[in-house]
């Protein structure tokens, strides 16, 4: 977030939170680790752009409320849960924000694991894949596409009941209903993790959960291999979208010949550009992944 508010000022508007430490930030959002009611929580501060226009303000507020309402409805243990700070509007300086809290899921993100060159076993990959598929199954059942599954948004917990948890529904999209994000013409998502079909200008008409299956595949591919197949340090960043649309990743088995060929093929299959060529049945995918554990 640009022009982040001073952490002291944030503390003043959230008096129930103490020991605030910034742990992440996005375009409109800052996330703090904080102590609330004796436990550690993730406190989210979301700027509400108003552009001086009441209608835009209400639209943005409405979207955020829907995201939070959606989270509150989700029962999957593999999706992050809301915590004790109920969403409320706060003003810091002249800017409007909404503050609320989510559980602080202890563990290590897949990104953090990758940074320390952790090489996941087939069991690690199948377990993470299963949690992500189950989380996606719940979202898909509500007609929602997460759109931002990536190594940074998957927490590996080490807890047997919920070995991996999917974080951040900030740009989730309601299929066939009210969009949870604005139809702004801007591409939502994170550059290297945009599903190819989202590069179609009409993607909102056709988007479905297979976009999340693609990003699950990509996250597992990157976790397994340590390589994002669409990131190329020798090419300018703006050519990434071209690569997403046209480049076929090297088969995963070429990076990890020690993994089972079935798992590698399954992950490769999820990365197909054409949604119709990805297996669409999440329950079948779960069954296949179970068989690979």
């Amino acid at each position: 977030m640009r022009d982040k508010p001073d952490i002291g000022a944030v503390g003043c508007v959230i008096p129930e939170a103490s020991n605030l430490v910034e742990i992440g930030s996005g375009g409109y959002k800052v996330v703090y680790r904080a102590t609330v009611a004796g436990e550690e929580q993730a406190v989210k501060l979301v700027r509400i752009p108003t552009d001086g226009d009441g209608e835009i303000k209400e639209e943005n507020l409405g979207r955020l409320r829907r995201e939070i309402a959606l989270l509150s409805e989700c029962e999957s243990p593999f999706l992050v849960k809301l915590a004790s700070i109920e969403p409320r509007e706060v003003v810091i300086g002249s800017d409007l924000f909404v503050v609320y809290s989510e559980e602080r899921v202890p563990g290590e993100t897949i990104r953090e694991r990758m940074r320390r060159k952790y090489e996941p076993s087939i069991g690690d990959l199948a377990e993470a894949g299963l949690c992500l598929l189950r989380a996606t199954a719940e979202l898909a059942g509500k007609g929602v596409v997460h759109r931002d599954i990536k190594p940074d948004n998957v927490m590996i917990t080490g807890v047997p009941e919920r070995p991996a948890v999917l974080l951040d529904l900030g740009i989730a999209f309601q299929t066939g209903g009210t969009p949870l994000t604005r139809d702004s013409g801007q591409l939502p998502g994170t550059l290297h993790y945009i599903a190819p079909e989202m590069l179609d200008p009409k993607f909102r008409q056709n988007l479905d959960h297979r976009a999340d299956l693609y990003t699950i595949g990509l996250t597992l591919y990157e976790y397994a291999s340590g390589v994002n197949p669409f990131r190329d340090p020798n090419e300018p960043g703006y050519t990434t979208l071209y690569r997403i649309k046209t480049k076929t990743p090297a088969p995963l088995v070429t990076h990890r010949p020690d993994l089972s060929i079935e798992l590698c093929r399954l992950i490769d299959q999820l990365l197909k550009k054409l949604p119709a060529l990805r297996p669409s049945s999440i329950s079948s995918l779960i069954a296949r992944m179970e068989g690979l554990k």
Partner: peptide, 14 residues
């Protein structure tokens, strides 16, 4: 064609 196959592989009733 691609839009069509995207549709028929996602019919409500499999």
């Amino acid at each position: 064609f691609e839009e069509f196959i995207n549709d028929i592989t996602m019919l409500d009733q499999a």
